[in-house]
């Protein structure tokens, strides 16, 4: 039954996925093209070119952020409609368990979200390397060097850890969205606003916890390890802390979602 649920979920989401991936491709072209013009960048001699390059990069950035946020919203709306809307009457009377229902969403929508995330990383890498090449044509930067610089990884293993975190983080964020929707149902009225507020509360808690645990660690590290020119690479324990926090929040919100859907279902 889980396979069947996943099949129908895929039939719905792949069209949205392709749409967003397409948007990202278009944005990447705009960004790439703007980045390539960087060599001719000179605000004084050609202000129009300067503005159009900046505009192009801004569009690139906005579309990329938009894709990320937009896809999450679409997944959230889909979950809400399928589980709690009028359509919920059909979904919950199928011979499936509530767990199979949410797993089908997590697996299929999560996979699409992860792929989009990867594509986004590739896009950023492509555009940034092109920009660097345009700025200083004598420096050749290959992909892994670029990544290691950007994420402060000293070796490929750390880089993999960072990549793993992005994937893991995407799934945690997805589960948090679903849990917020489940929590929103406990509001007597305005269940949608309840979901939004729950989401804000959860993400704020996570941010607060992150700051509280990470800033002291970071400050301590900087005092003991700063190199003379003030450049500091992000230490790997940093990433471990972030991942632990994500894991804890992920597990807690997952349990909230599970409990809400299996034991406390109350379809309007």
């Amino acid at each position: 039954m889980l396979g069947k649920l996943m099949k129908y979920e895929w039939n719905y989401i792949y069209k949205k996925f392709l749409l967003f991936a397409g948007l990202m491709a278009v944005a990447s072209c705009v960004g790439y093209f703007s980045a390539a013009q960087f060599s001719k960048l000179d605000p004084d001699s050609n202000p129009l070119l300067f503005m159009s390059i900046m505009f192009g990069l801004m569009i690139y950035y906005m579309i990329l952020s938009g894709v990320s946020i937009g896809f999450t919203i679409i997944i959230g709306i889909r979950f809400y409609k399928t589980v709690y809307g009028d359509r919920g009457y059909l979904t919950h009377t199928l011979p499936v368990s509530a767990r199979q229902i949410y797993w089908s969403h997590i697996i299929v929508d999560g996979l699409c979200q992860i792929v989009l995330c990867v594509l986004m990383q590739l896009s950023i890498m492509m555009v940034s390397t092109r920009m660097m090449a345009a700025l200083a044509s004598d420096i050749t930067l290959n992909a892994s060097d670029f990544y290691m610089q950007m994420y402060g990884a000293d070796n490929p293993v750390q880089l993999l850890v960072v990549i793993f975190y992005s994937i893991f983080g995407t799934l945690v964020s997805l589960i948090m969205v679903f849990a917020s929707i489940v929590l929103g149902q406990y509001w007597k009225r305005h269940k949608v606003w309840g979901a939004v507020v729950s989401y804000l509360i959860i993400t704020t808690c996570m941010m607060v916890v992150s700051w509280v645990t990470l800033i002291p660690q970071f400050v301590y590290y900087v005092f003991n390890n700063a190199s003379p020119d003030g450049i500091v690479a992000i230490p790997s324990f940093f990433w471990i802390s972030i991942m632990l926090i994500s894991a804890v929040f992920g597990v807690v919100t997952f349990l909230i979602m599970d409990h809400g859907m299996t034991k406390r279902l109350n379809l309007e």
């Binding site: 039954m1 009457y89 919950h92 009377t93 199928l94 011979p95 499936v96 279902l265 109350n266």
Partner: peptide, 23 residues
Amino acid sequence: NGLLTPTSGKVLICGEQPGVASK
């Protein structure tokens, strides 16, 4: 139909509580 959970008491379909089998 298992769309709500009871406060108390039983709903039995062919002797089973609402679940995948009853649906």
